[in-house]
Write a protein that binds this DNA or RNA. Sequence first.
DNA 1: GGATTATAGTTTGAATATCAAAATATATGA
DNA 2: TCATATATTTTGATATTCAAACTATAATCC
Lengths: 149, 149
Amino acid sequence: MAAEHPNITQHHSTDHTLNHVIIEFYEKLSSWEHAIVRDKGFSLSQVHTIELLGVHGAMRMKELADKIGVTTGTLTVQIDKMVEAEWVVRRPHETDRRSILVELTEKGQTLFIEHDALHLQLTTDLTAGMSSEERTVLLNLLTRMNREF
Amino acid sequence: MAAEHPNITQHHSTDHTLNHVIIEFYEKLSSWEHAIVRDKGFSLSQVHTIELLGVHGAMRMKELADKIGVTTGTLTVQIDKMVEAEWVVRRPHETDRRSILVELTEKGQTLFIEHDALHLQLTTDLTAGMSSEERTVLLNLLTRMNREF
DNA sequence: GGATTATAGTTTGAATATCAAAATATATGA
DNA sequence: TCATATATTTTGATATTCAAACTATAATCC
């Protein structure tokens, strides 16, 4: 048993290996995001909120809370602060008067675009050694995984 | 401009699309992990710690803190609790007397294995629609990305 | 329709997690 | 040796989080 990797036996199936590679990828992204976030003075959840709103557009509180993985109570106070900072606004849902939509302000958009550019740089760096065909294949495979979530 | 996706223009380059797919994948994994964690009564950081120690084996405090994305001060109190719960132990570093190695106990190993099984199930589900060749390609591409981090 | 149950969001108070800075111990290099 | 750098812990203040109670609206059932 290798002293430095006590929990990995040598002859995993592809599935096990793939699983660990995904976990490693997730951990590394998570660590990268953490570092970015701390530098900018946001919390991790706030950046996730900006990312989600930036990529998906306006969303209900409940939907957002589910996607981030926090309770709606937690999200309420978080969104309060983000409204205060003028990154997002609340507006009523068109058809469901219980619901509230949250969306990025212009300032929030700018933050999203800046943060997105950092992600793009990372993605570019990580895939620098790939051919354009390989990047296309990766895009295809990840898209299909996202659909299955 | 599509009302529901105000921030995504229609004609992105592959790189932009790939970037957003990676972000989406990360957000979804993060949300999944959050939900798992809340059910079990751990914190997200604690599970990351268990994952990291499980996959990498024993690690120094500093190294662990960097990978998780917290300060060493934060990690100290977190590890205190995990030692208390008998999931990990501290032991001196062989050559550097400033450093402390953290490693999983048998109980911690069991937790890791249980958590890892959930991840494996997720990975299996997400790649259920792929051929074995596609899974191999995915493994190859992700491994190369991990190396570039 | 009217009553009941479910869902969306907010508020509150307590518990927890986080950081920055100071303190201690050891290592490294001039 | 002395000065500087690194690893960890401690501390006190701040921020985050949850669960539960509460309000408002929607959906369902008789």
